[in-house]
Design a protein around this nucleic acid. Sequence first.
DNA 1: TATACACGCAACCATTTGATTGCGCAAAAT
DNA 2: ATTTTGCGCAATCAAATGGTTGCGTGTATA
Lengths: 101, 101
Amino acid sequence: MRRDVFQAIADPTRRAILSLLTLHAMTPNAIAAHFDCSRQAISKHIQILAECHLVEQHQTGREINYHFNAEKMKEVDIWMEQFRKQWESRFDQLDEILKTP
Amino acid sequence: MRRDVFQAIADPTRRAILSLLTLHAMTPNAIAAHFDCSRQAISKHIQILAECHLVEQHQTGREINYHFNAEKMKEVDIWMEQFRKQWESRFDQLDEILKTP
DNA sequence: TATACACGCAACCATTTGATTGCGCAAAAT
DNA sequence: ATTTTGCGCAATCAAATGGTTGCGTGTATA
């Protein structure tokens, strides 16, 4: 089971869950109320998000509040940043421009 | 077949292909030479990248050169924007902690 | 003209994914 | 004490994914 952040955010439902959790921590039931699929389906998505630490849990009584872990999302940002650098530093771009008549 | 940028970059091989293509445009054969799987497997990855316009093609004779489309990658960046605030504020908090004697 | 090459496409296969249903357990409410 | 609620877990299933092999077509080369 390879679980990385990229695979976690590949699913639109999981992205929506993350967006919800940026507002405030929520229980699985509260999250599921925003979607038209079963609580269990949402629960499995949360589990995947938890496995790669994009969300963390905090239990109070029988309720479990899940909250977003922004730090983990940095991994995507870091990759994008490296990518951007690599792209911007390519030196054949000038050549392309000069070649056009 | 939903094909969005997030699903495209979920696969590590596809991310590696994109990384290669930031350096210069390449043919499927040239790309496949960098991986230990068949040309067809790479070709399918390229097709997925092309479907969501992360790469564009330019045919010259019997060769097809694929090049990276940076514009499309912006979609990820735009989506990430909503989270960036959170970890930046977290940084501020860390500053606060460090400032206290 | 005959041969070698670059590539896309289709068929096929094992594994993973996303969803459902049913269950059991512990905490809260009655 | 009994019922209701919130939740995770296991079994199950259709569909998607990532890979393979084989084939056809069009372009370059001998």
